[in-house]
C-alpha cells in the first residue's frame, strides 16, 4: 500500500468517526423537537396511551385548530411581535451607530468606553431584576410591553456594538476617506457605504436578536400580569389546564411559536454571504 493511499485510508477512518459523533449529537439535539413535533399531531388519548416517541395513529390536526381558535394565542403572537420587532430594530440601530463610532471615529478614551459597553454582556439579568422591577413600577409601566422593549433594546446594545464595531473595522478606511474627499458626510458614509457592505453582519445580528427576544421567558414573566399582555412563551406555559397538561396543544403552539424565528433565519441566510468587500481594495 502506498503512503498516499494509506493516508487516505486513515483519513476515511477519522471521517467516519467524526460523521458518527456528529450524527449522534445532532439526534440528541433534535430529539426534544421531534418529541414535541410528534405530540402536536396526536390526540390527548393517543398521548396518554403511547410514549413521547410513538408515531401518531392518524394525522390529528385538532391541536392546531384549537390554538388558532383560541383568541389569546393571537394576542400572545401580536404582543411578542410588538416587543420583538422594535427591540430588535432599536438594539441593532444603536449597535450600528456605536460600532461605527468605535471603529471609524475613535476619540480619546473610546476604547475604554467600548470595553465598558461590551462588558454589559457579562451581567446576568438576575442581578438587575429587582432594581428594574422597582424602576418600572415607579414609572407605572408594570403590566405593559414597554419594560420588555426597553430592556431588550438596552441589553442588545453590547453584542450589537461588538459585532458591528468588529465588522466596520474590516471596512477599509480608504473607502471612508474617498467618500469624505467627495464631500459625502459621515451619515451618508454610514448609510450608503458602510452599511450596504455590512449586510452579512446585519443579517447575523437580526437573526440573533429576533430569536433571543422572541424566545425570552424571564422578562415577560416578571413584568406582565394580565393575560392580554403575555408574550408567546408565557402563553405556551399558561395553556395547561388546572389539573392536566395539554401536551398536544402545547406541542402545536410550540411549533407555531417557533415559525417566525425559522422564517427570519431563512430570510436572512441569503445575506450570510462572505466576500461582500471583495473588489473594494486589492483583491
Amino acid at each position: 500500500m502506498s503512503a498516499a493511499s494509506e493516508h487516505k485510508h486513515v483519513g476515511d477512518g477519522w471521517g467516519a468517526v467524526t460523521f458518527i459523533c456528529l450524527t449522534v449529537l445532532a439526534l440528541l439535539f433534535l430529539a426534544p423537537t421531534i418529541g414535541v413535533l410528534l405530540s402536536a399531531f396526536k390526540s390527548t388519548r393517543d398521548i396518554a396511551l403511547g410514549d413521547l416517541w410513538s408515531l401518531p395513529q392518524a394525522l390529528y390536526l385538532d391541536n392546531f385548530a384549537e390554538i388558532f381558535a383560541n383568541p389569546s394565542v393571537r394576542i400572545y403572537l401580536v404582543n411578542t411581535l410588538l416587543v420583538t420587532v422594535p427591540a430588535t430594530a432599536a438594539s441593532i440601530a444603536l449597535g450600528v451607530a456605536a460600532g461605527y463610532v468605535f471603529a471609524k471615529l475613535p476619540f480619546r478614551g473610546s476604547d475604554l468606553i467600548f470595553l465598558g459597553v461590551v462588558s454589559g454582556m457579562f451581567f446576568p439579568p438576575q442581578i438587575i431584576l429587582i432594581p428594574l422591577f422597582k424602576l418600572f413600577n415607579a414609572l407605572g409601566l408594570i403590566d405593559t410591553l414597554w419594560p420588555m422593549i426597553l430592556i431588550h433594546s438596552a441589553m442588545g446594545i453590547p453584542i450589537c456594538t461588538l459585532l458591528m464595531r468588529n465588522f466596520f473595522s474590516t471596512v477599509p478606511n480608504a473607502l471612508r476617506e474617498a467618500a469624505l474627499l467627495e464631500g459625502v458626510n459621515e451619515w451618508q458614509i454610514l448609510t450608503r457605504v458602510a452599511l450596504p457592505i455590512s449586510l452579512p453582519a446585519l443579517a447575523v445580528l437580526a437573526t440573533l436578536q429576533f430569536t433571543w427576544i422572541w424566545n425570552d421567558f424571564l422578562w415577560p414573566l416578571i413584568f406582565t400580569q394580565s393575560d392580554d399582555k403575555r408574550t408567546i412563551m408565557l402563553g405556551l406555559v399558561s395553556l395547561r389546564g388546572q389539573y392536566s397538561v395539554a401536551w398536544g396543544v402545547q406541542g402545536a403552539l410550540s411549533i407555531v411559536a417557533s415559525l417566525p424565528t425559522q422564517v427570519i433565519f431563512l430570510f436572512f441566510q441569503r445575506f450570510f454571504i462572505r466576500g461582500m468587500t471583495m473588489g473594494a481594495v486589492k483583491g
Binding site: A174, E177, E182, V184, I197, M276, M278, A280
Partner: peptide, 26 residues
Amino acid sequence: AMVFQSYALYPHMSVSENMSFGLRMN
C-alpha cells in the same frame, strides 16, 4: 481628488455609481 493605492472603490456599486457617488450625494 485622490486616487488611493488600494483603489478604494465601493464594492456594492457599479462603475458608473462609483464614479457618480460624490456628485449624487451632493
